[in-house]
Computed example of a mutant assay.
Amino acid sequence: MVNRSSTPRTDLPYLRRRVKPPLPAAQPEATANPAAVAPAAPAAQQPAGLVLGRNAPPSAANPRAAKLAARREAARNEDHEVGLLFPAPGIADVFELNLRERVLRLTALESAVGTMVVSGSTAMAWESTRRVVGGADAAGHTAGSPVKTSGNRPLVGYDGTAALVSLRHVRELRRAIFINRSSGTMGVQLFSGATVALPPVAGGIQLVLLVHRIGNVLELRAEPVPEAWEDLQIWQEFDFTMTHQAPAGAYGR
């Protein structure tokens, strides 16, 4: 450490240091007219129509953020719509849908995860949110128009004798109906393993399964119809008007 109060030594040149004189204090500039000094100009205001940087809302900065915000708003509206529904049992509370236990309601999670498998049905029909309507039976006959998801798979369709509903794309589904003309029960199974059954024809009455989406949940209902009604008559009764398209196999029932 250098002692500034000591006298610099002249016998040791390499230890000599140059003592810098102190800088004079800064003096304010003289002006002829002090009142003429203009105040600092305010920062330029940003145009109202221009949004830059961090001040930009998500919709302006990122289209994906705007899409997610719209989905969140739609989910809030759907939750409100579901909150207005009358109370209904869940699938864990009902063993069988019949003339006494007519309805159950899935949770939002149960309605959107995995695939809903309907076994024992002989025919079905579907309607998308875009009002595309189609039908099929377990023998491979079709009517109306299919509904393809983004993965190029049917929203509702048969895989062998089992009817499948892709719950991953449940927001594209408006409703579906399943008919059972066999002597066995018709069953519904979810990804979680929860199941519910519908009895076969008895006393001239057959129960069809109506799956309806309300907000973000699915409601399952057992609807009685006369045993003598054909598939086309049942579809007409529930207002499933087929979208015109030449089917691969003619539907004659």
Rank of each mutant, 00 (worst) to 15 (best):
L50K: 02
Q27H: 13
D93C: 04
Q27I: 13
A41F: 12
A112Y: 00
G120Q: 03
N77S: 09
A41D: 11
E110S: 05
P63H: 04
E81C: 06
M116G: 03
R102M: 05
E101H: 14
A56M: 15
L99E: 15
A75E: 09
R71Y: 01
P89S: 13
E78V: 03
A123F: 01
V103Q: 13
V117A: 14
R64G: 10
A44F: 11
V117G: 06
L99Y: 11
N33A: 11
A25L: 15
A32Q: 11
A35C: 03
A123P: 02
K67S: 11
R76D: 15
I91D: 01
R64N: 12
L109S: 04
R76F: 14
M116E: 04
A25R: 09
E78L: 02
L99C: 12
A92I: 09
V118M: 03
A48G: 09
N62L: 00
L99G: 13
A44N: 10
G120W: 04
L97V: 05
R76L: 15
E110N: 02
Q27E: 15
P63M: 05
M116T: 01
N55T: 09
V51D: 08
N55E: 12
T122H: 06
N55G: 08
H80Q: 15
P58Y: 01
F86V: 14
V82W: 07
S121N: 02
V113Y: 08
A44Y: 10
N98A: 09
L85W: 03
A44D: 11
R102A: 03
F95H: 14
E81G: 07
A38I: 04
A69W: 02
A36I: 00
Q45P: 10
F95M: 13
A30D: 07
G90N: 10
Q27G: 11
E110D: 05
P39K: 03
A35D: 10
Q45T: 14
R72P: 00
E73I: 07
D79N: 07
E73L: 12
V37F: 00
T31D: 10
A75V: 07
A40W: 14
G49N: 09
T122D: 07
K67D: 11
D79A: 12
A30E: 08
N55V: 07
L68V: 01
P34G: 06
R100E: 15
A43N: 13
P89Y: 10
P42V: 06
I91Q: 04
R54A: 15
I91F: 08
E101W: 11
V94N: 04
A66S: 00
Q27F: 10
N33M: 09
L84V: 02
S119K: 08
D79R: 12
A92E: 12
S121I: 02
E96I: 06
L109Q: 07
S119W: 04
A108D: 12
A32F: 09
A25I: 10
E96N: 04
E96P: 00
L109T: 07
E101C: 11
K67C: 09
P57Y: 09
E81H: 04
S59G: 05
R64V: 14
A36W: 03
G53T: 05
L50Y: 00
L84Y: 05
